[in-house]
Amino acid sequence: MGEYHVASSVEDALEKLSNCEGRAEIVAGGQTMMLLIRQGLVDPDLLVDISKITEIRGIEDVGEYIEIGAATTYAEIKKNPLIEKEFGFYTMATSEISGPQVRNQGTIGGGLVYGDPALDTPPVLLTLDAELEIQNAQGSRRILLEDFFVDYYETAIEEGEILTKILIPKLPKYSGGKYRAMTPRQGDYAIAGVCVRLTLDENGICIVARLGLTNGGDTPMRSRGAEKVLEGTKIEEETIENAVEILGKNLDLIGDIQTPKSYKEIVFKRIARQTIKDVKLELMSDA
């Protein structure tokens, strides 16, 4: 019978992981792990539960960054005033995740390490240029979130490592964003999702554009081509059309009977177009 260990600290968790002779797995909220076990995709000898480690749970303002512990739940993120004030669109995107029960358990870290391209918030964190802190027996390392997603359900985390922190740089002034997803019903997984974050200068010229995509390809991803088109411009209609065209070319979609590739591409372009316009408008009216 497999063992279950509720870790009291990161150190304790790392030690248990490295001392296990069989297969050890980390569990945070368990919202993905329980399904993997039930489907027989993983069959651990030891589960190390990191959800009660206080040092990796919670949200803090550390000056340049907002720091989120990897074991912080979606529910805690959704109602956190610091996050709402700094990145309101991240709060809004968190509301798109399933329903309250999954948000009460699911953690930001679990959603990132799993590397699922269908999740709503990893692309939002991409648009925020988030960084990660990872701990292992030797110490800790930092990595940019965009370098973390390697391939389909594959991330840069190694065996025996724990994702401990997500660091989000505070946004410069004249910044704003929005996440928009198309879902069959409230709380369902998105067929397509686009997060747009823009930063303008005082003349209304776009200095930073970020477009993060849910279900746009094998990993949570950015459309760098579209970002380049928008940067350095005043984001006029024609620029938006060019950006949306390039975004369409960046997609690496899998179609199915209900939602063929051609349909998904139309949805992506439509929500990208609308979301870029919305963010620009919001920024112009704030200025």
């Binding site: 279950y4 509720v6 368990g30 358990q105």
Partner: peptide
């Protein structure tokens, strides 16, 4: 974890009990 018929409370918070390993 989709249908919600297994919802219970942990403290004051609702969870889907089909997605909770009992060791937790």
């Amino acid at each position: 974890g989709v249908c919600g018929v297994c919802t219970v409370l942990l403290g004051d918070k609702s969870v889907k009990s089909c997605l909770i390993p009992v060791g937790k």
